[in-house]
Simulated assay, not measured.
Amino acid sequence: MCNNSVKIVLEIANNKHNIKAYEFPANVTDEGKIELPNAILQQLANNQKVKVIILVNESTEEEQ
């Protein structure tokens, strides 16, 4: 698994929403699944719905 560097990058708590955004490195497995660090999994309840934003480094023309 990736390095265990997990950061909370956003926290919103008011009478309508309680939201936390986490930032961490992850890998896509050969099966096409994203591996989540254990530190994140411990923060999530089973069957909890989450929103996912995926940021990828685009390769430059020089790298292709």
Rank of each mutant, 00 (worst) to 15 (best):
Q48A: 05
D30I: 05
D30F: 00
V52W: 04
A26M: 07
E58R: 13
E61C: 12
K33P: 03
I12F: 10
E11Q: 15
V56G: 02
Y22T: 06
E62C: 00
N4Q: 06
N27L: 12
P37H: 03
S59Y: 06
S5T: 12
K16M: 12
G32I: 06
N57L: 03
K33S: 04
Q42A: 09
N57V: 06
I53C: 10
I19D: 04
I8E: 11
A26T: 14
Q42K: 15
Q42W: 10
E61V: 11
E35K: 14
A39S: 07
P25D: 02
A26F: 07
A26P: 12
I54W: 01
V9E: 14
N18P: 00
L10S: 10
L10V: 13
C2R: 05
N18F: 15
I53S: 07
E23P: 03
E63Y: 10
I8P: 03
A45G: 08
Q64L: 11
E63R: 09
N15E: 13
N15W: 08
P37T: 02
F24L: 07
V6R: 05
M1V: 09
E31G: 01
L41D: 06
A45I: 12
K33R: 11
I34P: 09
A13M: 05
L41R: 03
L36D: 00
V56F: 05
I19M: 15
I8A: 06
V56T: 10
V9H: 12
N14V: 13
A45S: 07
